[in-house]
Design a protein around this nucleic acid. Sequence first.
DNA 1: CGGGATCCCTAAGGATACTG
DNA 2: CAGTATCCTTAGGGATCCCG
Lengths: 110, 110
Amino acid sequence: MIFDENSCPVTATMKVLGGKWKAILINAIYHTSPARFGELRRSVKGITQSMLTSQLRELEDDGIINRKIYAEIPPRVEYTLTEFGLTLSPIILSMADWGKQYKLKKKKQD
Amino acid sequence: MIFDENSCPVTATMKVLGGKWKAILINAIYHTSPARFGELRRSVKGITQSMLTSQLRELEDDGIINRKIYAEIPPRVEYTLTEFGLTLSPIILSMADWGKQYKLKKKKQD
DNA sequence: CGGGATCCCTAAGGATACTG
DNA sequence: CAGTATCCTTAGGGATCCCG
Protein backbone atom coordinates (compact mmCIF):
# COMPACT_ATOMS: atom_id res chain seq x y z
CA MET A 1 0.00 0.00 0.00
CA ILE A 2 1.17 3.50 -0.79
CA PHE A 3 1.02 6.37 1.68
CA ASP A 4 1.39 9.62 -0.19
CA GLU A 5 1.80 12.75 1.86
CA ASN A 6 -0.38 14.69 -0.53
CA SER A 7 -3.19 12.18 -0.79
CA CYS A 8 -3.25 10.94 2.82
CA PRO A 9 -6.39 12.23 4.58
CA VAL A 10 -4.68 11.89 7.96
CA THR A 11 -1.99 14.31 6.83
CA ALA A 12 -4.67 16.68 5.53
CA THR A 13 -6.23 16.73 8.98
CA MET A 14 -2.86 17.31 10.60
CA LYS A 15 -2.34 20.34 8.41
CA VAL A 16 -5.56 21.84 9.74
CA LEU A 17 -5.00 21.20 13.44
CA GLY A 18 -1.23 20.81 13.50
CA GLY A 19 1.27 23.28 14.84
CA LYS A 20 1.67 24.39 18.41
CA TRP A 21 -1.60 26.23 18.96
CA LYS A 22 -4.45 25.19 16.68
CA ALA A 23 -5.71 22.15 18.55
CA ILE A 24 -5.66 23.99 21.86
CA LEU A 25 -7.42 26.95 20.26
CA ILE A 26 -10.17 24.80 18.82
CA ASN A 27 -10.52 23.18 22.22
CA ALA A 28 -10.65 26.57 23.90
CA ILE A 29 -13.27 27.96 21.54
CA TYR A 30 -15.24 24.75 21.88
CA HIS A 31 -15.45 25.31 25.64
CA THR A 32 -15.75 29.11 25.55
CA SER A 33 -18.16 29.93 22.78
CA PRO A 34 -18.42 32.68 21.76
CA ALA A 35 -14.85 33.61 22.58
CA ARG A 36 -13.44 37.09 22.35
CA PHE A 37 -9.92 37.83 21.19
CA GLY A 38 -8.64 39.21 24.48
CA GLU A 39 -10.37 36.42 26.33
CA LEU A 40 -8.50 33.83 24.31
CA ARG A 41 -5.23 35.69 24.73
CA ARG A 42 -5.64 35.52 28.49
CA SER A 43 -6.94 31.97 28.76
CA VAL A 44 -4.58 30.30 26.29
CA LYS A 45 -1.42 30.60 28.33
CA GLY A 46 1.78 31.56 26.56
CA ILE A 47 0.37 32.49 23.18
CA THR A 48 1.45 35.81 21.69
CA GLN A 49 -0.88 38.26 20.00
CA SER A 50 0.61 37.69 16.58
CA MET A 51 0.36 33.90 16.86
CA LEU A 52 -3.20 34.16 18.10
CA THR A 53 -4.12 36.34 15.15
CA SER A 54 -2.42 34.21 12.52
CA GLN A 55 -3.74 30.91 13.84
CA LEU A 56 -7.28 32.24 14.10
CA ARG A 57 -7.03 33.47 10.51
CA GLU A 58 -5.87 30.11 9.26
CA LEU A 59 -8.66 28.34 11.12
CA GLU A 60 -11.10 30.80 9.60
CA ASP A 61 -9.71 30.18 6.12
CA ASP A 62 -10.13 26.47 6.66
CA GLY A 63 -13.78 26.96 7.54
CA ILE A 64 -13.31 25.80 11.14
CA ILE A 65 -14.27 28.99 12.95
CA ASN A 66 -16.47 32.02 12.39
CA ARG A 67 -15.30 35.55 13.03
CA LYS A 68 -18.04 37.98 13.93
CA ILE A 69 -17.14 41.66 14.11
CA TYR A 70 -19.25 44.12 16.09
CA ALA A 71 -19.03 47.73 14.92
CA GLU A 72 -18.62 49.14 18.39
CA ILE A 73 -16.21 51.31 20.31
CA PRO A 74 -14.20 49.65 21.72
CA PRO A 75 -14.12 47.00 19.00
CA ARG A 76 -15.42 43.54 19.72
CA VAL A 77 -14.79 40.33 17.80
CA GLU A 78 -16.28 36.98 18.68
CA TYR A 79 -15.09 33.59 17.54
CA THR A 80 -17.26 30.50 17.33
CA LEU A 81 -16.86 27.09 15.75
CA THR A 82 -18.64 26.69 12.44
CA GLU A 83 -20.85 23.68 11.81
CA PHE A 84 -17.95 22.15 9.97
CA GLY A 85 -15.64 23.02 12.84
CA LEU A 86 -17.96 21.20 15.20
CA THR A 87 -17.39 18.02 13.21
CA LEU A 88 -13.89 18.13 14.63
CA SER A 89 -15.10 17.77 18.19
CA PRO A 90 -15.07 13.96 18.23
CA ILE A 91 -11.40 14.12 17.27
CA ILE A 92 -10.58 16.82 19.78
CA LEU A 93 -12.42 15.05 22.58
CA SER A 94 -10.83 11.68 21.87
CA MET A 95 -7.47 13.40 21.69
CA ALA A 96 -8.10 14.94 25.10
CA ASP A 97 -9.02 11.52 26.42
CA TRP A 98 -5.97 9.88 25.00
CA GLY A 99 -3.69 12.66 26.22
CA LYS A 100 -4.79 11.96 29.78
CA GLN A 101 -3.95 8.26 29.46
CA TYR A 102 -0.61 9.18 27.96
CA LYS A 103 0.25 11.41 30.89
CA LEU A 104 -0.59 8.65 33.35
CA LYS A 105 1.67 6.31 31.43
CA LYS A 106 4.49 8.83 31.43
CA LYS A 107 4.28 9.27 35.18
CA LYS A 108 4.72 5.54 35.74
CA GLN A 109 7.89 5.59 33.65
CA ASP A 110 9.55 8.05 36.08
CA MET B 1 -11.39 28.65 31.92
CA ILE B 2 -7.63 28.39 31.58
CA PHE B 3 -5.94 26.50 28.76
CA ASP B 4 -2.36 25.85 29.70
CA GLU B 5 -0.09 24.47 27.03
CA ASN B 6 1.64 22.23 29.53
CA SER B 7 -1.46 20.83 31.18
CA CYS B 8 -3.69 20.53 28.11
CA PRO B 9 -4.16 16.84 27.20
CA VAL B 10 -4.92 17.80 23.59
CA THR B 11 -1.52 19.41 23.32
CA ALA B 12 0.08 16.34 24.88
CA THR B 13 -1.48 14.21 22.15
CA MET B 14 -0.32 16.62 19.48
CA LYS B 15 3.23 16.28 20.71
CA VAL B 16 3.05 12.53 20.16
CA LEU B 17 1.51 12.53 16.70
CA GLY B 18 2.43 16.01 15.54
CA GLY B 19 5.06 16.89 13.01
CA LYS B 20 5.08 16.08 9.35
CA TRP B 21 5.40 12.30 9.46
CA LYS B 22 4.23 10.68 12.68
CA ALA B 23 0.52 10.47 11.98
CA ILE B 24 1.11 9.07 8.52
CA LEU B 25 3.63 6.59 9.92
CA ILE B 26 1.21 5.35 12.57
CA ASN B 27 -1.41 5.02 9.88
CA ALA B 28 1.02 3.14 7.65
CA ILE B 29 2.10 0.71 10.37
CA TYR B 30 -1.54 0.26 11.34
CA HIS B 31 -2.31 -0.92 7.81
CA THR B 32 0.97 -2.76 7.18
CA SER B 33 1.74 -4.69 10.33
CA PRO B 34 4.40 -5.87 10.78
CA ALA B 35 6.17 -3.25 8.71
CA ARG B 36 9.82 -3.45 7.74
CA PHE B 37 12.03 -0.41 7.55
CA GLY B 38 12.64 -0.50 3.82
CA GLU B 39 8.99 -1.25 3.23
CA LEU B 40 8.01 1.92 5.07
CA ARG B 41 10.65 3.92 3.25
CA ARG B 42 9.16 2.87 -0.06
CA SER B 43 5.48 3.17 0.85
CA VAL B 44 5.63 6.47 2.73
CA LYS B 45 6.33 8.72 -0.21
CA GLY B 46 8.87 11.49 0.22
CA ILE B 47 10.28 10.54 3.60
CA THR B 48 14.05 10.35 3.91
CA GLN B 49 15.94 7.62 5.70
CA SER B 50 17.05 9.90 8.49
CA MET B 51 13.55 11.24 9.13
CA LEU B 52 12.13 7.73 9.06
CA THR B 53 14.68 6.59 11.62
CA SER B 54 14.24 9.54 13.96
CA GLN B 55 10.45 9.50 13.86
CA LEU B 56 10.31 5.76 14.47
CA ARG B 57 12.64 6.19 17.45
CA GLU B 58 10.44 8.88 18.95
CA LEU B 59 7.33 6.77 18.49
CA GLU B 60 9.15 3.89 20.14
CA ASP B 61 10.19 6.09 23.05
CA ASP B 62 6.58 7.17 23.47
CA GLY B 63 5.49 3.56 23.68
CA ILE B 64 3.48 3.71 20.46
CA ILE B 65 5.39 1.15 18.42
CA ASN B 66 7.49 -1.94 18.98
CA ARG B 67 10.80 -2.51 17.27
CA LYS B 68 11.71 -6.15 16.78
CA ILE B 69 15.21 -6.94 15.55
CA TYR B 70 16.00 -10.23 13.86
CA ALA B 71 19.64 -11.32 14.12
CA GLU B 72 19.93 -12.25 10.47
CA ILE B 73 22.06 -11.49 7.48
CA PRO B 74 20.83 -9.32 5.88
CA PRO B 75 19.38 -7.56 8.93
CA ARG B 76 15.64 -7.37 9.43
CA VAL B 77 13.65 -5.07 11.68
CA GLU B 78 9.90 -5.15 12.05
CA TYR B 79 7.69 -2.43 13.45
CA THR B 80 4.28 -3.01 14.97
CA LEU B 81 1.93 -0.90 17.04
CA THR B 82 2.01 -1.63 20.76
CA GLU B 83 -1.20 -2.21 22.66
CA PHE B 84 -0.98 1.38 23.77
CA GLY B 85 -0.33 2.48 20.20
CA LEU B 86 -3.49 0.68 19.13
CA THR B 87 -5.48 2.91 21.48
CA LEU B 88 -4.63 5.68 19.02
CA SER B 89 -6.49 4.01 16.18
CA PRO B 90 -9.88 5.62 16.93
CA ILE B 91 -8.18 9.00 16.63
CA ILE B 92 -6.28 8.08 13.49
CA LEU B 93 -9.37 6.60 11.85
CA SER B 94 -11.58 9.55 12.68
CA MET B 95 -8.85 11.86 11.44
CA ALA B 96 -8.77 9.95 8.17
CA ASP B 97 -12.54 10.27 7.93
CA TRP B 98 -12.49 13.97 8.64
CA GLY B 99 -9.65 14.57 6.22
CA LYS B 100 -11.76 13.15 3.41
CA GLN B 101 -14.64 15.49 4.21
CA TYR B 102 -12.21 18.38 4.35
CA LYS B 103 -10.86 17.60 0.91
CA LEU B 104 -14.36 17.47 -0.53
CA LYS B 105 -15.05 20.86 1.02
CA LYS B 106 -11.86 22.32 -0.40
CA LYS B 107 -12.72 21.15 -3.89
CA LYS B 108 -16.02 22.97 -3.80
CA GLN B 109 -14.26 26.20 -2.88
CA ASP B 110 -12.26 26.14 -6.15
C1' DC C 1 -9.79 46.37 21.88
C1' DG C 2 -8.16 43.80 18.32
C1' DG C 3 -5.29 43.73 15.52
C1' DG C 4 -0.92 44.66 11.47
C1' DA C 5 3.96 45.07 10.20
C1' DT C 6 8.55 44.00 10.92
C1' DC C 7 12.53 41.69 12.38
C1' DC C 8 14.70 37.72 14.43
C1' DC C 9 15.95 33.04 15.99
C1' DT C 10 15.69 28.37 16.97
C1' DA C 11 14.35 23.74 15.83
C1' DA C 12 12.17 20.85 12.52
C1' DG C 13 13.12 18.89 8.53
C1' DG C 14 16.14 17.51 4.38
C1' DA C 15 20.48 16.04 1.47
C1' DT C 16 24.35 13.44 1.26
C1' DA C 17 27.86 10.21 2.44
C1' DC C 18 29.33 6.42 5.15
C1' DT C 19 28.82 1.70 7.98
C1' DG C 20 27.96 -2.91 10.75
C1' DC D 1 19.17 -3.99 5.02
C1' DA D 2 18.78 -0.78 8.28
C1' DG D 3 20.60 2.28 9.90
C1' DT D 4 24.58 6.84 11.72
C1' DA D 5 26.80 11.03 11.19
C1' DT D 6 27.17 15.73 9.25
C1' DC D 7 25.96 19.57 7.33
C1' DC D 8 22.54 22.69 5.55
C1' DT D 9 18.02 25.08 4.64
C1' DT D 10 13.59 26.68 5.77
C1' DA D 11 9.54 27.81 8.10
C1' DG D 12 7.26 27.91 12.44
C1' DG D 13 7.11 30.57 16.09
C1' DG D 14 8.30 34.78 19.03
C1' DA D 15 9.39 39.90 20.40
C1' DT D 16 8.54 44.41 19.68
C1' DC D 17 6.44 48.45 17.98
C1' DC D 18 2.67 50.77 15.68
C1' DC D 19 -2.46 51.72 14.39
C1' DG D 20 -7.84 52.57 13.60
